[in-house]
Amino acid sequence: MSEWRELATSPLACVLVTLLGYRLGLWLRERTGGHPLAQPVLVAIVVAAAAITLADVDYATYADGAWLVSFWLGPATVALAVPLHRQVRRLHGMAGPMLVAIPLGALVSMLSAYGLVTLLGGGEELALTLAPKAATTPVSIALAEEVGGIPALTAVVTVLAGVLGAVAGPTVLTLARVRDRRARGLAIGASSHGIGTSRALHEDEVEGAFSGLSMGLTALVTSLLMPVLVWLL
């Protein structure tokens, strides 16, 4: 039993479970013709959660073992600049709208989360936990720590926002008749960061490039506005 426990908590096992879950997600997406629910990240989350539950491994142990996967999140995020560079000519005429839309979107995201929690009777700590959900996970966690939120819960909510955006975002934009690939990418990146960007890249290279740009700018703007919002409130 002790040998099984040692094997289940080893870094190799944790990384293997994560990669197998993601690979299963890619296979399901191909087999279902890109069904919105067949998102590799969502499938990987379900597989990893099921595996560590069955093996009776706590999340902290799993996270420590799968650090290699987390390490590559930084380089992978930086690599999103590559498709943007390829589409740089499409930035023409977009600077003005982005300077208005992205800060406004970040502000609406923070205020709506804070206001909804307050309206439903939640405390300030919970409101500050949910407010930075539109930023990427590392940024939202750091902001939650700075303003007095609950970083662990912020991480969960941020990932959930990313998954929901990846699953439903393109459909919502289509129903709203948003057809410009640049606008679609900016909307997805601003609301569902890296997870939504992976879906956008799968849909269209232009859409994915602008989603990556929007993700980075939203994280920057949220980092600048969050302390000001806390001070004002």
Results as ranks from 00 to 15, higher is better:
L28E: 00
S10M: 11
G121W: 11
V69G: 11
A55I: 13
I102Q: 03
V230A: 06
S198F: 03
T18Y: 08
L164K: 02
A166S: 15
T154F: 09
R23P: 00
H85G: 13
V117L: 13
T77E: 00
S211V: 01
S192L: 07
L7E: 09
L225D: 10
G96T: 12
L164I: 14
L99K: 07
G74T: 13
V178G: 03
L12Q: 09
E205A: 15
A76I: 02
L16A: 15
V15A: 15
A49V: 13
L217D: 00
A13M: 14
V41P: 01
P138Q: 02
T129S: 06
G25K: 00
A135Y: 03
L130S: 08
G216R: 03
S211G: 07
T32K: 05
E3S: 14
T154L: 11
V100K: 03
A8N: 13
L28M: 14
T32E: 02
G34W: 04
V163K: 01
V178I: 15
M226K: 08
L229H: 01
V17P: 09
L54E: 01
P138E: 01
L37V: 07
L126H: 02
A113M: 13
G105M: 00
G165V: 06
W4M: 10
G149C: 09
A51Y: 09
F71G: 00
L107A: 10
A81I: 11
L99V: 10
T32D: 00
L84I: 10
